[in-house]
Design a protein around this nucleic acid. Structure first.
Lengths: 136, 136
DNA sequence: ACAGCAATCTGGACTTTGTCTAATATCCGG
DNA sequence: CCGGATATTAGACAAAGTCCAGATTGCTGT
């Protein structure tokens, strides 16, 4: 299945998002690349094409996608948030010197021995980040 | 053992840090509380006392402490970095609605099944963050 | 077609966190 | 007490993100 703009409209609708021109472009930027992009990068990509999309819209749209479960937020760099079109359970490897971020499939990763949560709390998600750097 | 300012001087020296007045105050803020503090919070605490410490010094000092292994950085909130005086291996629970951050001792937590690292890479650290919220 | 209305988009001002710089202050050895 | 290295400072700056009031878009019913 390819990530055409038409398919993006369907994807948005299936997540209860009104598929506007700008939203389709932003979704396309994320899904056609299958990469982790910052808001900045999304804006740059979307604005190399014909139509201009404002900063406010990029941020609003990414937040909307997040709420609707279309993308995931990855917080590894203190200076910017990355948005991840892969919402299946997985973890991340972060190369601290280059900023490169890649996925680890959660399928074979086992985390055991976590203490019980405080009462009345539910888990929203577990983020596992392996920070690596080039051996010196 | 109490976290007096005198003991802070020793702690700093043992980490190869010249114990100046400002550095002692900042270390004291972190270690006497044993809490996760942001740069902002550190500055607020340090400046309620007699002496004023500039923003630049607070940031410089926290970065220095980080390099010297005196504190650890915790990246869970896109808008600010927390500094953790606990450098022993441990993980974190983050309450997404309140911003409260607490420790999970790593002793009994087992993480298995991680894939091999790309060649030439070494692990700098593994961050495990359990994001929780009040059940609704 | 088109008036009315809700949803969306926009530029730009604003906030916050953090960095940088050049000048000043402090400390220490001789 | 001089001189150099180390530390601190105020304030300008940068980057990410938020907010708002006004303009656009795209339905809906007639």
């Amino acid at each position: 299945m390819h990530y055409t703009r038409d398919n993006m409209a369907g994807l948005l609708r299936s997540h209860d998002i009104n598929p506007t021109h700008q939203r389709i472009e932003i979704a396309h930027a994320l899904f056609s690349r299958q990469e982790h992009l910052s808001a900045d990068q999304v804006m740059a990509i979307v604005n190399t094409r014909h139509s201009e999309t404002s900063k406010a819209t990029v941020y609003n749209t990414l937040k909307l996608f997040l709420e609707k479960g279309l993308v995931r937020e990855v917080i590894v760099d203190p200076s910017k948030v990355f948005f991840d079109p892969n919402t299946s359970p997985h973890h991340h490897i972060y190369e601290v010197d280059t900023g490169k971020l890649s996925d680890i499939d959660a399928e074979h990763v086992q985390i055991s021995g976590l203490p019980p949560l405080p009462t009345g709390m539910v888990t929203e998600g577990i983020d596992l980040i392996v920070r690596v750097r080039r051996a010196s």
